[in-house]
């Protein structure tokens, strides 16, 4: 152990800081960031006075929301279940799309760089467009109701899941892969016995997490006519039934919390 009294103080010196705190570079960066914030405030019409002036209205809406209309609960069960059902199938279809794309988009297992580029491109496109936009497209294509919501969630979350999967595959320990190659196992066998067991816990975690996100997303999808509890939410607000609105918000809060808990339990069991 190094005793602080033992060493020769005259020999050990802390070298001086190489740079001053305020360098020209740093001042420039700070000025630039201030400019960006000011410019964005103008663009987004940020206004403190509008917030103050609007405050009474917010208080007014909240007061009209109270007390929540508890009698509504029974009629909310079906749309709530519908929202969860949309999330279940949206996530499942997303996994089906994301699995092959994820492996193709992982640099260490992709059979050819062309596959890598194409699958990355597809995943990026899926991720760049929000599920809300996809929902609008699918509502136009297959009509109102929960089914376009399923398709929208499937396409968008496949983009995100695929990217996560690819990253998990890229981060595996290459040792066992090399060991199986050395035994003469072919690429598919190596994938099944060495890559899949390594990435399985991460895949499950990401997928469950995405399912949680999709339940929340599915409530929003109702706003564009893709069914579920979001549709009820929009209806209540259009009809100025604010006590119904607050009840629906309570049900959403409860549903999301319960599902968070359930998926965290499942995750703990698997890993």
């Amino acid at each position: 152990m190094l005793k602080l009294v033992d060493y020769d103080h005259s020999r050990v010196a802390v070298p001086p800081r190489e740079k001053r705190f305020f360098t020209w570079q740093r001042i420039l960066v700070i000025l630039l960031m201030m400019a960006v914030y000011w410019y964005s405030a103008v663009g987004s019409e940020l206004s403190f006075t509008a917030l103050i002036q609007g405050a009474p209205h917010i208080v007014d809406i909240i007061s009209r929301m109270l007390p929540p209309n508890f009698l509504l609960v029974r009629s909310l069960i079906k749309p709530t279940l519908e929202t969860i059902q949309v999330a279940v199938w949206g996530t499942t279809l997303a996994v089906v799309i994301a699995l092959p794309l994820g492996f193709l988009a992982a640099r260490n297992v992709t059979p050819h760089p062309v596959f890598y580029m194409i699958s990355r491109l597809i995943l990026n496109a899926q991720r760049a467009i929000s599920e809300l936009v996809f929902a609008l497209i699918f509502v136009a294509a297959v009509g109102l109701g929960p089914f376009p919501g399923v398709l929208a969630l499937a396409v968008h979350s496949a983009g995100q899941l695929g990217k996560f999967y690819a990253e998990a595959v890229e981060n595996i320990d290459p040792g066992p892969v090399e060991a199986l190659e050395a035994t003469g196992a072919n690429k598919i066998q190596t994938l099944v016995f060495s890559v899949v067991p390594q990435v399985l816990p991460e895949f499950v975690t990401y997928t469950l997490y995405r399912w949680e996100v999709n339940v929340r997303a599915a409530t929003v999808l109702g706003l564009v006519g893709a069914g579920g509890i979001g549709f009820e939410l929009m209806k209540s607000m259009r009809l100025f039934k604010y006590q119904d609105t607050s009840m629906i918000l309570l049900v959403i809060l409860l549903t999301v919390s319960v599902l968070d808990y359930v998926s965290s339990r499942i995750r703990k069991r698997i890993i």
Binding site: G175, P176, A179, T183, P197, Q198
Partner: peptide, 25 residues
């Protein structure tokens, strides 16, 4: 056959499955 400094076993598989990997070819 080849054995490695870091053993290179598939950690989440059972011992028997790891051994069976040697039969894959």
């Amino acid at each position: 056959g080849m054995i490695f400094q870091q053993f290179n076993l598939v950690k989440r598989l059972s011992v028997l499955d790891n051994v069976l990997c040697g039969r894959l070819a």
